[in-house]
Simulated assay, not measured.
Amino acid sequence: MIPFVDLKAQYASIKDEIAVAIQGVLDSCQFTLGSEVAALEKEFAAYGGAREAMGVNSGTSALHLALLAAGIGPGDEVITVPFTFVATAAAIHYTGATPVYVDIDPQTFNMDPAKIEAAITSKTRAIIPVHLYGQPADMDPIVEIARRRGLIVIEDAAQAHGAEYKGRRVGSLGDMACFSFYPGKNLGAYGEAGMVTTDNPDYAKRIRMLRDWGAEQKYHHVMKGYNFRMEGIQGAVLRVKMRHIEAWTEARRAAARYYDKAFAGSGIQTPRQSEGCRHVYHVYAVRSPERARWQQELTAKGVQTGIHYPIPVHLQQAYSDARWKRGDFPHSEKASDEVLSLPMYPELNTVQQDEVVAAVLETAKQLVPTR
């Protein structure tokens, strides 16, 4: 079986470095925040072109605290997309605010800027574009609308470590940006972790307090906060992985080019990299109206696949809302019905990719009409 992702292969390649890093934390006993997290924050901020970075315990917490730092709360509305992992909407709900959805561009899977103006009301306070699958959203028009309408822009960059938009890294394109270091991400911890980046020192100060019980100094709580601190071991692990992130990213991009070339002319709808962008291929998603059969056939042929994501947020039972129904966001709904993610990770070799390609092309002959 060709795995969808192979975390063991990556661990094997850096095992000795990881052992040294973890031992350093055990020796220092700085298990929560500490010097490793502080060093990671500086390194990650520099990598993304931001002035500040604040480590937290998950990507979801990063979104939650970014919204709170921006003053978002009950009665406010935040514009985002329904074709995303549920955490994007969940974080908005955590603040007491209400998510308002706009549809995606069917080619990029990202927020369609042309849909934003119609969704803005007197209650709108922020926009959260999602850099889905590692492809940057079209940020210039999004930021232009936000500046003109007095709105905050928070990038959901959970899947886009190292992605670039017109020569700038994601994480430096809005007012704040939020990253996930879930183990399967392009830069993944050995557990849960996340990060917020910003150029705004006031936002940075608020997030540092909010992640640590709202304390300005120990036992001096100036706001109601949370226990959202990053663990020292995760900081140490991520610092090791930061040394490899560019090589791993280029390996993903090479694997994507290999797939692109192999599937050219087959009728298979492959990912499109937007002009002026660096796609980092957290996910390589193809599309088929016969997805269920396609996935079943590929599994039988020894190829593991994934679906990101099978149900858009507005149709999830937990997030149902009388304002939204099936048909309101047709591009998001169609993508949810059709996307199928193929194996994609830096250690994926050409022998494995050839097996994937052969299985996909054989299946496509039956399920995808030739162009």
Results as ranks from 00 to 15, higher is better:
Val5Met: 11
Tyr11Val: 13
Asp16Gln: 12
Val20His: 05
Ala21Met: 01
Ile22Phe: 08
Gly24Glu: 07
Thr32Ser: 12
Leu40Tyr: 02
Ala45Thr: 00
Ala50Gly: 03
Ala50Asp: 10
Ala53Met: 03
Ala53Trp: 06
Val56Pro: 01
Thr60Lys: 14
Leu68Lys: 12
Ala70Gly: 11
Gly71Ile: 04
Val81Lys: 07
Val81Ile: 15
Val86Met: 12
Ala91Ser: 13
Gly96Trp: 07
Ala97Thr: 04
Tyr101Arg: 02
Asp103Ile: 07
Ser122Asn: 15
Lys123Gly: 03
Lys123Ser: 01
Ala126Gly: 02
Pro129His: 04
Gln135Asp: 12
Pro136Glu: 02
Asp140His: 10
Glu144Ile: 00
Ile145Gln: 08
Arg148Gly: 08
Leu151Glu: 00
Val153Ile: 09
Ala160His: 08
His161Leu: 14
Gly174Arg: 09
Met176Trp: 00
Ser180His: 04
Ser180Pro: 01
Pro183Arg: 10
Asn186Gln: 14
Leu187Pro: 04
Ala189Lys: 07
Met195Glu: 00
Thr197Arg: 04
Thr197Val: 01
Thr198Ser: 04
Thr198Lys: 00
Asp199Trp: 08
Tyr203His: 11
Arg206Ser: 06
Arg211Asn: 07
Arg211Ser: 11
Lys218Asp: 14
Tyr219Glu: 07
His220Arg: 14
Gly225Ser: 00
Asn227Glu: 11
Glu231Met: 13
Glu231Asn: 14
Arg239Trp: 08
Lys241Tyr: 01
Met242Asn: 06
Ala247Trp: 01
Thr249Tyr: 13
Arg253Val: 08
Ala256Ile: 08
Arg257Glu: 13
Arg257Pro: 11
Asp260Gly: 01
Phe263Gly: 00
Gly267Cys: 02
Arg278Asp: 02
Val280Trp: 03
Val280His: 09
His282Lys: 11
His282Glu: 14
Val286Asp: 01
Glu290Phe: 13
Arg293Trp: 10
Trp294Gly: 00
Trp294Phe: 15
Lys301Thr: 08
Gly302Cys: 09
Gln304Thr: 13
Pro310Asn: 07
Pro310Ala: 12
Gln316Ile: 10
Gln317Lys: 15
Arg323Ser: 10
Arg323Leu: 08
Ser332His: 08
Ser336Leu: 07
Asp337Val: 02
Val339Asn: 11
Val339Gln: 12
Leu340Phe: 03
Tyr345Gln: 07
Pro346Cys: 05
Gln353His: 12
Arg371Gly: 15
